[in-house]
Simulated assay, not measured.
Amino acid sequence: MTRADAAGIKGMMITGGSLHESREAVDLANGLGQGVYATVGVHPTRTSQLDSYPSGAAVYLGHLEELIEQNSKPKGKGKVVAWGECGLDYDRLHFSDIDSQKRHFATQLGLAQKHGLPLFLHSRSAHEDFVSICRAAGYETEGGKASGGKGGVVHSFTGTEAEMKELVEMGFYIGLNGCSLKTDENLAVAKAVPLERLMLETDAPWCSITTTHSSNHHLKSLPADLRQLYFPDSCKKEKFVMGKTVKGRNEPCATGGVAWIVAQVKGIPIEEVASHAWKNTVELFGLSELDS
């Protein structure tokens, strides 16, 4: 948190990917105070939990709804700002099969609409089914909004430019992180994302930017003072030193590095990238306390 603050991070979202994780995310958001929020939902690789839950999927989802009712606006504390992470992941079917993912994705879209929440979305090697299910749920109108819903962001985007454009045409935002910037093709997609549909993220502790990524050479132009803020000194976890990051473990402070790379490929100042990403995020998730 100290490193994030030093790097200029003014807001964070802790992602829930299961009932257990969603509860942890909400507890953390409540404990860490202003500027920290949570999502509640079931990641596509965890939908098998819904099928195997002793009391049934409806009860599992009911517990998630209780979290929302207790911790979202207007009745709760306002810490839950999105339904998710939900979607489809056909790269990791050993966790949850296609049928399970599709059924429970559609259900979760309905619950997001019921509670008037925007979506935090995941799509891996499943674009056609992903779009089809979203359209069937009504997410194809202007702004990506369905009845009662508030649009959403397809986070950690690694798809093609054509896929990105279709999602943007549906009104969704595109979230970019280190995994979104691995290859030359990824960088071309990042360049093409409209600023009014851009969001920035780290997906910490995952999706760090490594020396093997095509994006890494753009960091050579990053000023030394910013490099130290965005990518502080690290150590191996076996030799942990207080005050240093753990090697290979991503952190929110690296968001600035993502912004720098996006700015470089677009050929615009980092301030312009950050300004649009900030505005988009505050508006989609209704983060009124940060809108100042």
Results as ranks from 00 to 15, higher is better:
K10M: 14
L219S: 04
K79F: 06
D27Y: 03
I98K: 15
T158Q: 12
D51A: 14
T2H: 11
S208G: 14
K102Q: 15
K102D: 11
S132W: 08
K10N: 13
G17A: 14
K237G: 12
E271Q: 11
G257F: 06
I98R: 15
A192C: 06
A204E: 04
S48M: 12
R103A: 14
L195P: 03
V282G: 12
D91L: 04
T2N: 07
S275W: 10
K236W: 11
D89M: 05
S288C: 09
H213G: 00
R3A: 15
A82F: 01
V262A: 05
V154K: 08
G87H: 05
G248P: 01
P269N: 11
S292Q: 15
E24C: 04
E21H: 08
W278K: 13
L222Y: 01
I261R: 02
H94N: 15
A25Q: 02
K73G: 05
F172R: 02
T39W: 00
F120I: 03
D225Q: 03
K73R: 14
V59Y: 10
W260K: 02
V153S: 09
E166D: 15
D291E: 14
Y139T: 11
G31I: 03
E283Q: 11
N186T: 07
A25T: 08
T211N: 07
F285W: 11
K220T: 08
A274N: 09
L32V: 03
Y53G: 06
L119K: 06
A192G: 10
A25Y: 00
A25F: 00
